[in-house]
Design a protein around this nucleic acid. Structure first.
Lengths: 131, 131
DNA sequence: TTCCGTCGTTCACAACCCTTTTACATCGCG
DNA sequence: CGCGATGTAAAAGGGTTGTGAACGACGGAA
């Protein structure tokens, strides 16, 4: 397992999300906010309602990969490439398993929020939504 | 699922009315707009009045196939080829059923709009129209 | 070195959702 | 008025996803 982490550490080069607040060309978008959830890419920490939420390396990368691309559906292959690096093995379920783990941690802390939306037959999207 | 999904490949030249807020670095035909409906081909998402509308894979492909060809009448066979791929079985009603599902989702969110027009004996067209 | 806890991966199975098919009501047109 | 075409709910079926558990690898502590 390498020291070179797959590409989640820097803002995606093609990021054009029109999220609405700041100019996305600056690399200063190191802090992502979605409702009561705050993802600090620079510190590798996550806050839920201001309280720190402990994630493993994989979980954090997966969350970062999703949260830097809000409202965009990412295929499993894409996510695998972003988080694990390389091509996804045919029958792999790692993405699903980690989405499940991530949801567990996120939604056990923020029960009235949903963050990751399943797109059956394709993949997932980061679509924060108050329930 | 691979990369070669049917149908959504050739965006002719989409209807553009409200010019202005697009990214100027690349052809922005990845985003189709029809009244309050926005179809983001690149993000694989649909917005109705700015709120995200969740579609299944088939529904999205069908909408994309129609919306990339506004005001053009597409036969069932054509639509089937674009969305399902291959030739349409003789007595198939899938296209009709999915047009119905699509209309339901679209018009339940945007009651004062009609998007898909039936052409009896031929097929359907994407003809957005305010009622 | 050995023990122990954490993390990542794989596996299996149940539950779920999507697609397709079917059936019937309705509509359009001659 | 009659027949084919269309709209659509509902059933059937099968693929997809959610998730606990087992397993091994790794790293730290004693």
């Amino acid at each position: 397992m390498g020291a070179g982490e797959p590409g989640v550490d820097r803002p995606a080069s093609a990021g054009r999300d029109a999220a609405g607040q700041e100019d996305s060309t600056r690399p200063a978008e190191q802090v992502l906010t979605a409702g009561p959830l705050v993802v600090r890419l620079d510190h590798r920490t996550v806050l839920a309602d201001g309280l720190s939420l402990v994630l493993t390396v994989r979980e954090f990368h997966l969350l970062a990969a999703l949260a830097t691309r809000p409202e965009r559906v990412l295929s499993r292959e894409e996510l695998y490439g972003l988080v694990w690096g390389g091509a996804m093995p045919g029958e792999d379920r790692s993405v699903d398993v980690y989405v499940s783990k991530l949801r567990n941690k996120l939604e056990s802390r923020l029960p009235h929020w949903r963050f990751i939306q399943t797109h059956v037959g394709f993949g997932y999207s980061f679509s924060p939504r108050h329930l």
